[in-house]
Design a protein around this nucleic acid. Structure first.
Lengths: 216, 216
DNA sequence: TGCAACATAATTGGCGCCAATTTAATAGCC
DNA sequence: GGCTATTAAATTGGCGCCAATTATGTTGCA
C-alpha cells in the first residue's frame, strides 16, 4: 500500500500530505494556511503549494478567500449532519456486497486489523490510531468491489474530519470504535447483513455531538 | 440561473464552461485537449486554462498524462456500471424526503419543467434538452433538503456523461425520459415512495447499454 | 487617552518566459 | 520500397518576478 509512488513527485502528493496534516489536526478549523509556512513545512516551492491548495479547495478540504488566502474549512453542524446522513446511506449500502463477497482470507485480514487497532488504542499515537482505523475500514469497504463507491466514502470521510471538533476526543470513544469493529466482524462472519448495516450506521452516528436521533 | 456571476471572473468559471462543453459532446472521448485550442476557444490566458484543466482532473472529468497533456477521460463499461450502481443508491435514497417535503408550489414547478422538457424534446436543441432535463432533476433533488447529497448527485452525473456513448442517441430514449418525468411526478403527488424509488432507479438504468439486469 | 489617517511591511496571486519532452518530418541506409 | 536514425517543429509544464491587496504599525490631532 505504502509502496513506491514517486512518479508525480510533488504536486498531487503534496496535496495529500497537507490533507493528512489537516486530518491529524495540525491545523485548527478556520486557521489560515499561509503559503510561506506551508512551503517551509513541506519543503516545497511556492508554486507547488499553490497548486496543492487549489486541489484541496476543489476537494472541499479547505476554502479560498480572494486576496486573503486559504483556510481550513469551518463546517457548520448542519452540513456535518448532512454529511453523516449521506455517509449512512452510502456506507450501509455496502453491507450485503461485503457479506456476499467475504472470504476466509479477507476475514482474517480484517480480524488482524481490528486487533491492531485495539493495540493502537492502548499504546499507539494518534496518528497510528488514525492510520490503522483507516486501514480497517478500507479493507472492509474494498470488499464492496466498487472502486467508485470506495472513493466516495473516503471523500466524505475526509470532508467530515476537516473541522470535526470531536475526533476521538475521549479515550472512551476510541474504545467504542474498537468494540464496533469487532462487532462488525462478527456480523460479517455470521452473514448478518441487517446487523452489519445497523453497526455501520451507529459507527457513523457516534461522531454526532448530541444524540441527534434522526432516522434520515 | 444563468445570471450575473462574474465575480470569480475566470478560473473556476472556465472549468465549468469546459466541463459543460464536454458534457455537450463538443470533445470526443479520449480526445486531447490542447491548451492552445482551449485558450482560443474560450478566450482565456494560458495560465487560466491550465488551472481550469487541473480542476477538472480533480473532478475526474478529464485525465492528465505527464508531458502529453489533458484528455477527456475514457470510462470503461465496468466503471460506468459502478457509477450507475452508486447513483441508484444515492438518488433513490432521496425518494422519501422528496415525498415528505413536497408542497403544491414545488409540485407545480416540477410540472412546469416536465412540460418544458417535453417541448424541448420535440422542438429544442440538444443543449436545450440537456438544460431543461438538468433543471427538472435539480428541482426534484433540491427537495431532499440536503445540499451535500445534491452536490454528490451532480458530480456523479457529470462523471458518467463524460464518455457515455449513448447520451440520448435516439429520439426514442428522449421520449422515454419524458414519460419517466411525468411518471415521477405522479408518484410524488400520490406520495408513493416505493414507486418513486423504482422510477428513479429505472431512469438511471436506461443509460445502460444492454439490459444489465443486476440488482446489486 | 482615544481615534483616524497615513505610511510601511507582509502576503497573495496574475502572468509569461523558456527549458524539457514529445511528435512530426526528413533524410539516410539496407 | 520499407525501415530506422537524425533533425526540426510543436506542446507541455516548472518556476519566479512583481504588481495589487491586505494587515500592521505609527504618527498626528481633537
Amino acid at each position: 500500500m505504502t509502496t513506491v509512488k514517486r512518479r508525480p513527485k510533488s504536486k498531487h502528493a503534496l496535496a495529500g500530505e497537507i490533507a493528512e496534516a489537516i486530518k491529524l489536526g495540525q491545523f485548527r478549523s478556520g486557521e489560515w494556511l499561509r503559503q510561506i509556512d506551508i512551503e517551509q513545512k513541506f519543503a516545497a516551492t511556492r508554486f507547488d503549494v499553490r497548486t496543492a491548495l487549489d486541489e484541496l479547495v476543489v476537494r472541499k478540504a479547505i476554502e479560498h478567500v480572494p486576496n486573503r488566502g486559504y483556510r481550513v474549512a469551518e463546517i457548520d453542524r448542519e452540513t456535518l449532519r448532512h454529511i453523516r446522513s449521506v455517509r449512512i446511506v452510502i456506507e450501509t449500502s455496502t453491507a450485503d456486497a461485503i457479506v456476499s463477497r467475504m472470504t476466509p482470507a479477507t476475514l482474517a485480514t480484517l480480524r488482524g486489523l481490528a486487533e491492531e487497532f485495539g493495540v493502537a488504542v492502548r499504546e499507539g499515537t494518534r496518528a497510528d490510531q488514525s492510520r490503522v482505523n483507516a486501514e480497517f475500514h478500507e479493507a472492509m469497504y474494498h470488499l464492496s468491489g466498487n472502486p467508485v463507491l470506495e472513493e466516495l466514502i473516503w471523500n466524505l470521510r475526509d470532508r467530515g474530519r476537516g473541522s470535526n471538533v470531536t475526533v476521538w476526543t475521549s479515550h472512551e470513544s476510541l474504545l467504542r470504535s474498537d468494540r464496533d469493529h469487532h462487532a462488525m466482524l462478527e456480523a460479517i462472519e455470521k452473514r448478518d447483513v441487517a446487523r452489519l448495516s445497523e453497526l455501520i450506521a451507529a459507527h457513523i452516528l457516534k461522531d454526532a455531538p448530541e444524540s441527534e436521533l434522526r432516522d434520515r
